[in-house]
Amino acid sequence: MNFKENGEGQDNGAGKILSLGKDSQGNDVYALSVKGERGMIYRLVESFLGMYEIKESELSLIDSGVRDNLYLLAGSFFCRSNYLAPLGRYLTSIGVKKHYGRLSQLVSEITTGLGKSSLTTQEKL
């Protein structure tokens, strides 16, 4: 439950954890936007796990380390408009491609480090 009294902050999806499905090892994979608050997000997750006595090994928080490049910023800007959304998507795809090598390397490192039975590898922010 949530008790809101004023309109402080805009809910633009920041902090929402999106489910992307399961990987080949059966682990649930999620994505999360941190809005530049990396340290705070880590403490929030850690505190949540502690609060509900959930083992830290149940959740592995991986920082992709990717920051928005110019293509991604322009793409997200154009995507706000109905007419320019195709251009926005095109620019976004270019932006993602620029990071693709790094992301793919990160994912391969994580998947080799994580087994289905053990989720102990944790990259702290």
């Binding site: 633009n12 954890i17 608050e37 705070m40 997750v45 949540f48 959740l59």
Partner: peptide
């Protein structure tokens, strides 16, 4: 939660849903 109440609220809700 600094100036991002939506981050706390969304994250808490999402984590609660997951667990």
């Amino acid at each position: 939660r600094r100036s991002h109440p939506e981050i706390l609220e969304n994250m808490f809700e999402s984590l609660a849903g997951i667990f």
